[in-house]
Nucleic acid binder design. Sequence first.
DNA 1: AAAGAGTTCAAACGTTTGTTTGAAACTAGC
DNA 2: GCTAGTTTCAAACAAACGTTTGAACTCTTT
Lengths: 239, 239
Amino acid sequence: MSPTPQVKRLQPVDVSAQTTKTRILDAAEELFMEHGFEATSLRLITTAAGVNLAAANYHFGSKEELFQAVLTRRLDPMNRQRMDLLESFEAAAGGHTLSCDKILSAMFIPALKLARDKETGGQNFLRLLGRAYADPAPFIRDFLSQQYHEMIARFRTAFAKALPHLPKDELSWRLHFVMGALSYTLAGSDVLKMIAQYQPDEADNDELLLSRLAPFLAAGLMAPATTSGSVHQMFQEAG
Amino acid sequence: MSPTPQVKRLQPVDVSAQTTKTRILDAAEELFMEHGFEATSLRLITTAAGVNLAAANYHFGSKEELFQAVLTRRLDPMNRQRMDLLESFEAAAGGHTLSCDKILSAMFIPALKLARDKETGGQNFLRLLGRAYADPAPFIRDFLSQQYHEMIARFRTAFAKALPHLPKDELSWRLHFVMGALSYTLAGSDVLKMIAQYQPDEADNDELLLSRLAPFLAAGLMAPATTSGSVHQMFQEAG
DNA sequence: AAAGAGTTCAAACGTTTGTTTGAAACTAGC
DNA sequence: GCTAGTTTCAAACAAACGTTTGAACTCTTT
């Protein structure tokens, strides 16, 4: 059942098996991004990868497992980078608490690095990730929830120190908004046409994007806590 | 081909045709929300609606047109309400420019009203809408882009007056972030588990949610304009 | 060169998909 | 009570889906 090979060939490092696997992963990443999970067939993926249809099931077991493999390949290292970066920032700050901007940058910079690494097709991946966040499929939601759990918890405590005046639940909400704006923005690209008057055409799109998103979110995070019933009041006024 | 009946029966208003249509729309709304467009089959919808499978194609033509009908039914009135409300706010303010909060409330209140109208199943719809925003299908993106175009343009000019210091393109980005956070938040519900420590269980979830989102976004909108290269600098520092 | 594990391949599996069909059922107007 | 138009229904359509199969093939190891 399990095609995982034993540790044998140490010297020659037979990459032929990995090239097929990698070709499938690359093609799947691009096509899942373009059409979503449900609308992308294994036949489309294997044809684009130039491999046999059965190779997908042979190497990954099922379509769902393939999708998870696509996500894990880049998500895992990125989230580890985020936590490492946050830790190094905290170490560098000594006893001082980090600013919101600094914590936010620990979230953004690894994403930015991934987006820039064109050799690994990172730009496609961030969009795929953004879409996966909004996907209704339970196995995707559960998988992401599990993948992000540690990182989110780590950043929540960091933000809690930076924003001591903020109630715990309010902070949870705002973290939710931050993740939402981030993933939605990454997923967007063509939704932008709906709003922006011009389409930026440079390759360093993502740096520009995050450099505008970061201050926006930092300001939102640092806003004073919600006065209870403010929207309720407005709602009454508008009848 | 076109099953659209001529305007004939004026008095009795035969609702039997509309009940089938409405039953399909209601079931489709709920199932599309739960499983997404691709993963929801017409058989699932028609079975849930208690109608014959062929009725979906008879009344709506195709699955895509049914989906658009589901969206239009509520989206159209909501966006019109948003624009009307904004206009009435501007009229009430006389010559004075509106605050960001006030403009934001003109966007939120109609959504809130829709969410509250339980008889029309509005809560389900907002989630469906949020997910549709992130859907890769071109026909969905094109449809939404067209549906939102007028409203977005209207609110952009309103925000431009409220934030005269902000460059035009920066405002476009921020509007994008606002729409993103809003739609993502509405789509979320269970993504919340990833972040929040507790799950609010009250029925007026949405009012609570928007009352926390609004100040967050208002603060983001009112943040000073991006200093060029701020993230770039951070990126360099972090290596 | 023989053996054997790992991989690729064409072909087929049984389901499920959106859509179409033509007859039956229903609802008016005359 | 017949007729015409609208709606419902069971049945079938071709196409596409994820997955499985068993034989061919490619290697390294002995």
